[in-house]
């Protein structure tokens, strides 16, 4: 917090809370990039690493849950502190979901057949890069408490959605032309879906970052397309 509290332990609690969110975010980011690598290369070891590391994300979520409950009970936070704690609680839930989606992608790594010649596979990493960048940037926005950046990230979600649409159509036509690849292509449909969900959750986190910073709900704004670049 910019202003220090009379009770120093409260500051420590908030710092710890933010630290846990940061750690969780770092793990989630890594999970996305590594699950994608596992998917593209078919590396079982990497997929297993992503799946194993997801346990740590789950444990962190629990730790954040406990800490927020403790803060509510002991410190009864007000105003921006209250928003900070609520945002942390919600963000941790979303990061946990992002970790789950990444884990799910990693689990599908070994079900792609004929990886070298399977053309649609080359489309996925580009989408993952956009979704991963959204997660990376939203966590930076959280660290910087930057509402303008949060708005910008929300606008990027349309790009992921468009990507999902195009991959979906591409995969469907690929399946019609090459019925043999339906198993692999169907797996990729789920992967693309997971990435699209990751983008949605990054948007939700951005909304919470905006809420924590401005006390206003980004989702409620009448016209999202015409949001001013600087928060009022």
């Amino acid at each position: 917090m910019v202003a220090e509290h009379t009770v120093k332990a409260f500051d420590e609690d908030i710092t710890r809370l933010r630290g846990l969110i940061g750690e969780m975010g770092g793990l989630a980011e890594l999970a996305i990039s590594e699950s994608m690598e596992a998917l593209v290369t078919g590396s079982q070891a990497q997929a297993a690493a992503v799946i194993a590391r997801d346990k740590r994300i789950d444990a962190l979520e629990q730790e954040i849950d406990k800490l927020t409950v403790r803060i509510f009970a002991l410190r009864a936070p007000m105003a921006d502190d209250l928003r900070e704690v609520i945002a942390a609680l919600k963000i941790s839930g979303m990061l946990e979901r992002i970790g789950d989606y990444a884990k799910n992608i990693a689990k599908r790594a070994d079900s792609i057949i004929g990886r070298e010649t399977f053309e649609p596979l080359t489309l996925i990493p580009a989408m993952a890069e956009i979704a991963g960048e959204m997660v990376h940037d939203v966590l930076t926005a959280y660290a910087a408490r930057d509402p303008a950046m949060a708005i910008e990230i929300c606008e990027r979600d349309a790009k992921v959605d468009a990507f999902y649409e195009s991959i979906f159509r591409n995969l469907v036509s690929h399946m019609m032309e090459n019925p043999k690849t339906i198993t692999s292509a169907a797996q990729l449909l789920f992967v693309a879906r997971n990435l699209e969900r990751i983008g949605d959750h990054a948007t939700n986190i951005a909304e919470m970052v905006y809420f924590a910073a401005t006390a206003d709900y980004l989702g409620n704004r009448a016209d999202r397309a015409a949001v001013p670049s600087s928060p009022s």
Partner: peptide
């Protein structure tokens, strides 16, 4: 980014290896 100053390193750097 300029926001790292004064932050907990886990928030500022974030990457598990870091």
């Amino acid at each position: 980014g300029p926001h790292v100053v004064g932050q907990d390193a886990r928030v500022a750097l974030r990457h598990p290896d870091a």
